[in-house]
Design a protein around this nucleic acid. Structure first.
Length: 630
DNA sequence: CTAGGGTTAG
């Protein structure tokens, strides 16, 4: 009779046992194996005399680790019963603790192993680097690094090198990671990609780009990394440029690549790009229905491109939704002034088993704030930690200061800021300053602004806002004091700029007082005609929107040259009579322009959508979705 | 064993 080696038998057996047990797990829809099942498997091993076989026990421990079963008691138990564990078995246990914790057990076991004179394998070092990366212990990481060199040869092992790079990156030591990379005798795409991603996450796109250019062979993953890197670093045009290069190079794209590009399109906020990438996604079989991440990215993109209906359509059509999908949709509703829809969706979400997170609450609270729903917002804020164990961060205090302040409860807002449990951030004081602007309260504005000048000394917007608040109150001495401060700091005003989507997605850009457009005189005329019709309907220019101490005539003239008005007039001239006019502005839309937009939507019978620096205004029939509350 | 993914406020 032919003798079968023990390892071969055990491999077959291992397959049989584990196929059975994993199909059982699937049938029971369990995430983790039940203790009884583990016991059964172990009893089986003992019965077969395989509980001493390192190979089988190693496999068992690896499987348990993968299934996220706790290391104790079973993994540790089966390990302890093996009389002569080999380095692979030790390593499986060390890795298990590295992945699931407690981390110090990995270290203790590693030391035990060394004391017993067991020689580590390369895999052991990888496991240790993993552990160091998890707890960000770079000191231990460096010690293990030194040992890989002492042990001879391991430091130049490709896998050990890659895990070492990974550990240094996780700990934030990019230079050390780069040094390992530079000293490695063999590198693969993984080594390159790890570093490229690390550089781009650190905002160093030039370094990432340099490495990318040097790479001998580029695969889909690294192309995706560079596209996504640009998208994440607020360079959507570059992201799209590289995506197109990637396609031209004949590289496949998958849903991960698409997500990066979708995010870039969201940042551009133009329908043209939205339609373009949607088309590509559908054609390559990665529509928003199938994949949660793609779907959520599309929801966000459509919201940011001003297409709230399509965002919701995508959301509704998604087969699976998670906290990102809901949060994006809630934030989207809030952005478009649909506070009720946002809050309803939030409550709908609570009925599912998806748990809201910090971002979800930021979304709901801003929705409340934009709709002036103070009590509802306060109630949600009060329950977020108690009921959903999401501790409020300063972001949430920004929302609350905004909620109270916008609603005119400036004193309460100030009190909240003074008593909040962490140091108030620029955002919190900024919300208060903004509210003081809306409600014309120079005293509270002063308090907020003084904190802001400390926290954000170079942020021009704060100086302008304070100066405008003084101007509205007629305190011209204070105005010139702030102006002087700005001059001293050499801060330059960020010019107001608007652009409008014309036919075929072509956009036109206008600055305040802009006369450079070839059709300038026509635009002026169209705007004048519109204003005349509005005046006949009772419109009065809001002179208080001009923060200069000049004559009323001059103020009227300044108002007429605001970039969003020029964009509006051009929109009328250059788009079909039944289409929506889409305008974007880099700064907050001014009150006078807001009134004009309302009136224009009624008189001209057109839908107008304006995106200013934070949100969308939908004008229809003389009304705005923000309810004149923004 | 190691590399690429989406949501945040003034």
């Amino acid at each position: 009779m032919q003798r079968v080696s023990k390892e071969t038998v055990s491999l077959t057996l291992y397959r049989r046992i584990f196929t059975i047990s994993s199909s059982k797990l699937r049938a029971l829809q369990l995430q983790q194996p039940e203790p009884t099942q583990i016991k059964q498997v172990h009893a089986h091993l003992i019965l077969q005399g395989l509980d001493q076989c390192c190979y089988v026990v190693t496999k068992l421990i690896r499987m348990l680790t993968k299934l996220e079963a706790p290391m104790e008691p079973y993994s540790l138990l089966v390990f302890k019963q093996v009389k002569y564990p080999n380095p692979f078995l030790w390593t499986a246990l060390i890795r298990g603790y590295a992945v699931q914790g407690p981390f110090f057990e990995s270290v203790r076991l590693y030391n035990c192993m060394r004391r017993e004179g067991i020689h580590p394998v390369s895999f052991t070092f990888s496991a240790m680097f993993k552990a160091c990366g998890v707890v960000l212990d770079v000191i231990l990481g460096r010690q293990v690094h030194a040992q890989t060199i002492l042990m001879g040869g391991f430091a130049s092992d490709l896998f050990v090198g890659n895990t070492m790079i990974n550990m240094y990156i996780k700990c934030g030591f990019l230079d050390s990671a780069r040094q390992v990379f530079d000293e490695m005798s063999h590198r693969d795409v993984v080594s390159w990609t790890e570093l490229i991603v690390a550089y781009s996450k650190d905002g160093k796109m030039e370094s990432a780009q340099d490495l990318f250019d040097e790479m001998p062979v580029k695969d889909m993953v690294v192309w995706t990394a560079i596209v996504t890197g640009y998208a994440q670093n607020a360079s959507p045009r570059e992201a799209i440029e590289f995506f197109e290069k990637m396609q031209a190079a004949g590289i496949n794209t998958d849903e991960v690549t698409l997500v990066g590009v979708i995010s870039a399109c969201a940042q551009l906020g133009a329908s043209k790009y939205a339609n373009w990438i949607r088309d590509i996604a559908e054609k390559s079989g990665f529509g928003p229905e199938e994949n949660v991440v793609v779907g959520s990215a599309f929801v966000d993109m459509y919201s940011k491109c001003g297409n709230a209906e399509e965002a919701y359509k995508v959301f509704e059509g998604m087969k699976e939704r998670n906290v990102f999908s809901y949060s994006s949709m809630i934030v989207g509703f809030a952005m478009h002034g649909q506070a009720r829809a946002a809050i309803e969706l939030f409550y709908e979400m609570l009925k599912t088993d998806i748990k809201p997170n910090r971002v979800t609450f930021v979304g709901v609270l801003t929705a409340c704030s934009h709709a002036g729903m103070v009590e509802q917002g306060q109630q949600i804020f009060a329950t977020m930690e108690k009921c959903y164990s999401v501790a409020p961060t300063s972001d949430h205090y920004v929302c609350m200061a905004d909620l109270l302040g916008r609603a005119g409860q400036l004193e309460e807002a100030l009190e909240l800021v003074k008593t909040m449990p962490m140091d108030p951030t620029g955002g919190v004081w900024g919300a208060l300053l903004g509210a003081s602007h809306i409600h014309g309260n120079p005293d509270i504005a002063e308090i907020a602004a003084n904190h802001l000048f400390e926290l954000e000394p170079n942020s021009i917007g704060n100086y302008i806002l304070l100066s405008n608040i003084y101007a509205s109150a007629g305190r011209w001495d204070d105005v010139s004091r702030v102006r002087k401060l700005m001059r001293k700091k050499k801060l330059k005003k960020n010019p107001g700029c608007s652009w409008v989507e014309g036919k075929k997605g072509v956009t036109h850009e206008f600055f305040a007082g802009d006369m450079t457009h070839p059709k300038s005189s026509e635009i002026r005329q169209a705007l004048q005609d519109l204003i005349d019709r509005l005046k006949a309907d009772g419109y009065q220019p809001k002179l208080s929107c001009v923060p200069y101490n000049v004559s009323d005539e001059e103020k009227k003239h300044v108002l007429m040259t605001h970039s969003e008005k020029l964009a509006l007039a051009y929109g009328f001239l250059s788009t079909d009579a039944d289409s929506t006019i889409k305008i974007m502005k880099n700064l907050r839309i001014c009150e006078d322009c807001h009134v004009v937009m309302c009136g224009a939507s009624k008189i001209m019978g057109r839908k107008i959508v304006v995106r200013d620096n934070t949100r969308f205004h939908h004008f229809l029939n003389g009304e705005c979705s923000c309810g004149n509350f923004w």
